[in-house]
Amino acid sequence: MNSPKHAFQALRRWTSQAADLTAKAGVLTRVLARRGPAAAAWLSWLSLGLAMLVMGWSVPTHASQQTGPGQTYRVNSEADLPYVAQHWLERNLPVLSARESERGEPVRLQAQLGRLDGRLRLAPCAEVEVYAPSRLWGSSHLGMRCIQGATRWSVTMPVQVQVMGQAWVLRANVSTGQALTDQDLERREVDWAEDSSPVLATDAWDGQVTARSLRVGQTLRQNMLRAAKVFTSGTQVRVLVQGSGFQVSTQGRAMSVGVVGQVAQVRMDNGRVMNATVVDARTVRVEI
């Protein structure tokens, strides 16, 4: 039994043979054109017919891709499915890469197929449809279902998807609570999908400190950093009180540690305790 891989290779060979036959017949057509339009027309129809016969009689129907608005495949058994899945990936990964790149940084998707259950036995199917999750990322799968056959079936095949793009990588070991500098990092192409925490593709690490000890070669990700504390409880701070059309500056004392962008408690001069957003090491903001 021919494998789908061999079928696809044969399809390309037979297509080339048909094109070559048509080209040679075209040369004869130009020669016969000098002998009259009837002879030329007859040979043109003959060359087209021969090309169609080559394509129609020689292309194996086993595991071939179907034409039409949907991308479907004809398979003979479960042994065909890895080739179907691989062909689908080769056609769609460039599109998926472009779609992911539209979210921000340019990335390139590449995938490695897993294995089907060796006990699986499937009936032949005239049309198999391939479907995927809304986002192919990391440990994922491809689904394949028979939509036209004596027996309807549906299976999934595991696939490991790498999302290759530029990110920050540690070039030195750093300890917990350390502020990162340019000397600690370098840009490198890595697999964004290797971990569930998003990578830091930009310089968003600036002004933050490490949440835990990190080793050289690790890809910098969001869960590895935290905002740095800019003041401690008891620090005297300037309080900007803002409202609709006005802003008042006064003094207060921090009642908790301050982290830029987060909320800290501040005791005002009148003794009232308010929640304020930390702006910097000396300033907080209260919205009323």
Score class of each variant (00 low, 15 high):
1 M>N: 11
8 F>M: 09
9 Q>G: 12
9 Q>K: 12
12 R>Y: 01
15 T>S: 14
17 Q>W: 08
18 A>D: 02
27 V>P: 01
32 L>C: 03
40 A>C: 04
47 S>I: 00
47 S>K: 07
48 L>R: 14
51 A>H: 06
65 Q>A: 12
74 R>D: 03
74 R>A: 15
84 V>H: 10
95 V>M: 10
101 S>G: 13
106 P>Q: 04
108 R>C: 03
114 G>I: 04
115 R>N: 10
129 E>A: 15
129 E>C: 05
132 A>W: 00
133 P>F: 09
142 L>V: 03
143 G>Q: 02
143 G>A: 06
144 M>F: 07
144 M>C: 11
150 A>C: 01
152 R>Y: 06
155 V>I: 14
156 T>K: 10
163 V>R: 12
163 V>L: 07
166 Q>A: 15
167 A>G: 15
174 V>L: 05
176 T>Y: 06
177 G>M: 06
180 L>D: 07
184 D>R: 04
189 E>Y: 10
196 S>T: 08
197 S>F: 06
207 G>Q: 04
214 L>H: 08
215 R>C: 05
222 Q>P: 00
227 A>V: 13
233 S>Y: 01
234 G>F: 02
238 R>G: 13
240 L>N: 12
241 V>W: 01
243 G>P: 01
244 S>C: 03
260 V>D: 02
260 V>E: 02
269 D>N: 13
275 N>A: 15
279 V>W: 06
287 E>Q: 13
